[in-house]
Amino acid sequence: MHHSLFLLLVLLLPGTWADPEGSFTVRLLQISTFQNTSSVDTEGLGLLEDIELGALDKRTWNIHFYQPWVRPALPRSDWDTIENMIKIYLQKFSHLINDGASKRDVPYPFVVQCVAGCELYPNRTSRAFAYVGYNGQDFLSYDVDLGKWILYEDTDLARYVQATLQNYTAFSELVQVLFNDTCVDDMELLLQYGKAALARREPPVATVFARAPGPAQLLLVCRVTGFYPRPISVAWLRDGQEVLPGPALTTSAILPNADLTYQLRSVLAVNPGDGHSYTCRIRHCSLGTRSLLIPWGNSKAVLISGLVAALSAGVTVAAIVVLWVWRRRKYQKMEESEPRSSIVSNEA
């Protein structure tokens, strides 16, 4: 279940992947589903970058560790303090939300998402943050420097929760201490113990194939998967020149795989038979200074054959046989219109 929590909060909450190069971030993620005033189901997950450190037991609110080096990284007293603070926070949090829901006639069920943590920069400065979402929408954020809760939407419910949190000084002080001091100090220890995990590198695996939504358009798809860490660069080259962003180029978000690697797709719309060659270029830290190049043909004939292959389901058996014989004679060594094999280039 913690994988779905990770993905949901990554997609819904702001600022999650905005880390500059060389920085490290610890995040505590929470989803609380309020079925009614007496039933709250809370999931929690701790992350160092995208490494899952541990999760919250929904029944006891104890921490279960996923990495063997996490518990040795911090003194037992620190873990006891963190667990106690989390339990106190969750009790207060549930009471506060239910109280606000009853006073503002908020209908049940509803979901509250939270992410909080700290970011450590290469120059040893740091930034703490906290965000709250309501039913998948941005709701509140906490400005640690100003000590104030900031509204995303000016609604009656948001103003009420903002005022309640602002007047709850003990909670604000807890946030200040936890994320300005404890978080950064503990993160430095986690970085030492988790050095090997943070250095993990998984190279991307890529394929290129075509889709033909109509006779006048060909979609070249570059699917890249299995890479780690997350940052990656995927571009299309037309005759060796990078295709600039535009309506013909669509690249998906980077999404997690079940094995804790990542994937994405980049789609380029081209005119069949335009005579250009196309290549998908991938750059990733696991490749060093090299680039992974996945070509899609180099001539008008290749693009045409790709279109024919995509439409072949609607061609009669006799036409397929004639086409195969013609291609066999004229292009004996031409590859079928399937994903091309990758080429590693020393291109910077």
Score class of each variant (00 low, 15 high):
Phe24Leu: 08
Gly275Asn: 02
Tyr108Glu: 02
Ser305Pro: 00
Ser337Cys: 12
Leu7Cys: 04
Ser286Val: 10
Ala210Pro: 03
Arg223Asp: 13
Pro122Gly: 14
Trp324Ser: 11
Pro72Gly: 08
Thr261Cys: 11
Ala101Met: 03
Leu47Asn: 12
Asp80Cys: 02
Ser172Trp: 04
Val205Leu: 11
Tyr152His: 08
Glu202Ala: 09
Thr25Asp: 14
Asn84Lys: 08
Ala130Asp: 07
Phe6Cys: 04
Cys114Val: 15
Pro203Gly: 05
Ser233Trp: 10
Arg265Ile: 11
Thr164Pro: 00
His2Asn: 11
Pro256Lys: 13
Thr164Gly: 06
Gln241His: 15
Thr279Ser: 12
Gly194Pro: 13
Val234His: 01
Leu29Tyr: 03
Asp99Pro: 01
Val234Leu: 09
Asp154Val: 01
Ser266Tyr: 13
Leu244His: 07
Val184Thr: 10
Val26His: 01
Asp80Ala: 14
Arg230Ile: 02
Ala128Phe: 02
Leu311Cys: 12
Thr60Gln: 06
Asp186Cys: 14
Arg76Phe: 10
Asp259Trp: 00
Ala253Lys: 14
Leu189Thr: 06
Arg104Val: 04
Gln192Leu: 13
Leu174Tyr: 06
Ile31Thr: 14
Ser94Lys: 09
Trp79Cys: 02
Leu9Val: 11
Leu47Glu: 11
Val322Phe: 14
Ile82Ser: 04
Val70Trp: 00
Val224Cys: 00
Trp296Pro: 05
Asp143Ile: 01
Val40Thr: 09
Asp186Gln: 14
Val221Tyr: 05
Asn167Cys: 02
Val308Glu: 13
Asp105Trp: 01
Pro229His: 03
Tyr152Gly: 04
Val322Asp: 15
Thr250Glu: 15
Ser23Asp: 10
Ala212Lys: 06
Ser126Gly: 09
Leu5Ser: 05
Asn167Gly: 14
Pro245Asn: 09
Arg327Val: 11
Ala310Trp: 05
Ser38Phe: 07
Tyr228Cys: 12
